[in-house]
Amino acid sequence: MEFIFFLLVNVGITIVFFTIRRKRLHPVEIFLYWCLSSLIFQNYSAIQTMNIKSSIVPDEWSPAFAHLLNRIMLYPVISLLFLNGYCAIKSRGTKVIYFLGWAAAATSVEWLSSIMGVFVHVWLKIGWSAAFWLFHNGALIGVMYMTRLALFRRRM
């Protein structure tokens, strides 16, 4: 049940990203940010489930595979949508609002997966999730800034 639900969400959001006609990200950028986002989230998840035990992934195939799918596909694609939109914004104030809004949206998705029994937060507070997503999105913006300087010798 959980797996089917998140499979549909994953496929849906991936289709949304790849059907955006005017992509502002270069193919190698998409590849890099996908990897990086997945890596950061998997470390966050691994530390929580294996070390500090603030969250669990139930030992059943449906939530376990849903979590696998989410960490390699859903969260990276959400991040790509965030970065693609971020590049389109010119005003600094709008960028800040957009940045905070996407951190809230990603936190909501993470907590939806917790409520649905996929990545269950045992004692993790919502503020920690929000802080993680602020760090995650901020780190991706920093990497995008450096990557663009190296690739195109231009700023965002």
């Binding site: 470390n43 691994a46 294996m50 195939w61 979590h67």
Partner: peptide, 26 residues
Amino acid sequence: PLTIVFLLIYNVTFIATIDYSLAATP
């Protein structure tokens, strides 16, 4: 240099994904 950085990040992600999936969940 850029290829090294991209390949490094790709490899670490790939290995972390395989390791986390096979050694931990699921």
